[in-house]
Design a binder for these strands. Structure first.
Lengths: 194, 194
DNA sequence: CGTAAAACGGAGAGTGTCTCCGCTTAGGAG
DNA sequence: CTCCTAAGCGGAGACACTCTCCGTTTTACG
């Protein structure tokens, strides 16, 4: 479960797996470096840098979005798993806060990046199905518990909070970004109390 | 001031102005129709539909972003002016709430669209200077008054709220979008109180 | 081994951005 | 009204990127 190299249950041939991993490695590096504006990175370039033909890249990942999702799937899974842990070890509100801060931290440290999230939260019409479900499930669980324990208003929707967070993630370029984000977490939590 | 067709003080030749307006008209229509995913619309297509050569389009607007900003500048100006009115006619918190809701409404009715805002709030590295300053100034003024009157905590930053709002704007495709947005406004305001 | 299925790779078709520069047109001077 | 000049036009084409197609190579298994 910690291994992210096997998203499809179907087993790959040795050379296929090798290439897939090489692509993922190069792509992560390239996406991270380009920060925002993921569209700047050419997929053919990634293929070239990974030492494979572009046809091979496109057989593994049909388009930019699929590649993007695959690159960040592992980290998103980790984020989702941490939600479970927080859920079982921390008081409700604190669990939500900590998870939100962790989420922000993932972005700050580029373990995940905003453009991979834009789409995640239901954004444009793309279909980041896996990633979206994972993240949505994670915060949903935490918020629901907080509501059940009467520590959040029943009308609070976890999506609302998530979307606000994703929005803020979009400006990881300003120097005071991290403060902005944590300030917003506080505002959101305060505003969600009964 | 209500006229948005003269952003540059330099006076245009008659044919130039005619073309510029034609481009803006077609572009607005095209951007609105394409909803999200503005990148889908080809600039050369816009030129063709406006009945001009692509060279002409590119002389007026050097790239997609410049065109995008020009198209929505007028509405953004109106939004900014409304902030002034609210500022003078409504109690502080109410002014902020009403403006935020108006902002959401502009998005819901496509008077402005999210992608034109992504960048606005300092998002990616683009330089939506005019638009950004206008919107930022509008909400900044309202929030500052609310703080001065002791109705919001002094540590609340208007940017924080704005960014959260922009984030939510990104999902104008889900059916319950409007509710989500208004719910978030309430959470933000509640969480901003002293 | 031998062979079928899986995977590779890169040429090239299709599309989009943006530039360049010879031609056209507006609009002021006389 | 006419002429002249600078502002503006337009579209061919250079360049970049995405994605497909298919002949060639590689893997894995009997």
């Amino acid at each position: 479960m910690t291994e992210a190299a096997k998203p499809a249950p179907r087993k790959l041939r040795a050379d296929a797996k090798r290439n897939r991993d090489a692509i993922l490695l190069v792509a992560r590096e390239a996406f991270t470096r380009s920060g925002m504006d993921i569209a700047e990175v050419s997929l053919d370039d990634i293929a070239k840098q990974a030492g494979i033909g572009s046809g091979t890249l496109y057989r593994h990942f049909a388009n930019r979005d699929e590649l993007l999702e695959a690159v960040y799937l592992a980290e998103v899974q980790r984020l989702a798993e941490t939600a479970d842990i927080f859920d079982q070890t921390l008081p409700p509100i604190e669990a939500v806060r900590r998870w939100m801060l962790l989420f922000i931290d993932y972005i700050a440290t580029k373990k995940i990046i905003a453009p991979a999230l834009n789409n995640v939260a239901g954004g444009p019409q793309r279909i980041f199905a896996n990633t979206g479900t994972l993240i949505y499930g994670a915060i949903g669980k935490l918020v629901n518990r907080a509501i059940a324990m009467g520590e959040m208003r029943a009308d609070v929707q976890s999506v609302d909070l998530l979307k606000a967070l994703v929005g803020v993630s979009y400006l990881a370029n300003t120097p005071d970004w991290h403060e902005t984000a944590t300030r917003l977490v506080d505002i959101l939590l305060l505003g969600s109390r009964p």
